[in-house]
Amino acid sequence: MAFDAGKFLKTPDLESFDNLKKEELVLLAKHLKFNFKVSMRKQIIKNLVIDKLVDAEILGEEALELKVENVDAFKLKQLELEHELKKKELEMKEMEKIKVKELEMKERLEMDKKEKEDEFKLKELEMKLKELEMKERLEMEKLKIEMVKEESNTKVQSKSDYFDAAKNIRLVPKFCEKNS
């Protein structure tokens, strides 16, 4: 049989109120238009409902004796503090993880920067090497050209090592007996 909050409020009974289950207390609290979370403990919801019913004079002052003792409230406060402490510890761990990730990223960036610099230096060296190779090739070509010129000059000289008077007759002075 389903719990009817309206029916209960018409004929409230302290004993039946004390025996209500959490689900029934939630229905009663919703009927009374409370702002609460369903995840709250049964004792807290029960205390809220008792306060509201006593203020509205639906239940008498004797209902206040059903409220949970302060020891439970102290335990609840302690649990809340422990929960907050755990949350802060988790936050600190997350912050540490974030810091570690930041450090890793900085290291990666530095490594990438060094790699880029090394690549740039390597490319510069490769360009200088190519330039030197081209200069060397140019020098080799010059030497080849000079050697070819010298060879052609030596061939010409080898033919002209002997003096051919017939070819160069005009260079021979005229013979005069008087001068001899």
Rank of each mutant, 00 (worst) to 15 (best):
E82P: 00
I98S: 12
L66S: 01
K97S: 09
E136M: 10
E146K: 15
L79V: 06
K87W: 06
L129Q: 13
D118Q: 09
K114Y: 03
E104N: 04
L79Q: 15
K99V: 02
E89P: 00
K144W: 13
S160G: 05
D164L: 05
E62T: 11
K97W: 06
M105L: 15
K86T: 03
K52L: 01
A63P: 00
L59Q: 00
K86L: 04
K144C: 04
K101G: 01
A63K: 02
Q78R: 11
E119L: 14
A56K: 12
L76K: 07
H83L: 12
L109S: 04
E151L: 12
E117D: 12
K106W: 00
R108P: 00
V148E: 15
K101L: 07
M140V: 01
E141N: 07
V148I: 15
Y162H: 13
E136I: 08
M105K: 09
I58L: 06
I98F: 14
S160W: 03
D55R: 08
E151C: 07
E62L: 08
L76N: 06
M92G: 03
Q78M: 11
E94L: 14
M134F: 12
K93C: 02
S158R: 08
A166Y: 09
E126C: 10
E133Q: 15
G60E: 12
K123Q: 10
F74C: 01
N168Y: 10
Q157E: 09
I58A: 00
L64V: 05
L79G: 02
E104S: 06
L109G: 03
V156R: 05
T154G: 06
L79N: 10
E126R: 12
I145E: 10
N70H: 09
K130T: 05
A166M: 07
E61V: 12
M95W: 09
L132C: 10
L125C: 07
I58Q: 00
V54G: 01
V71Y: 09
A63M: 04
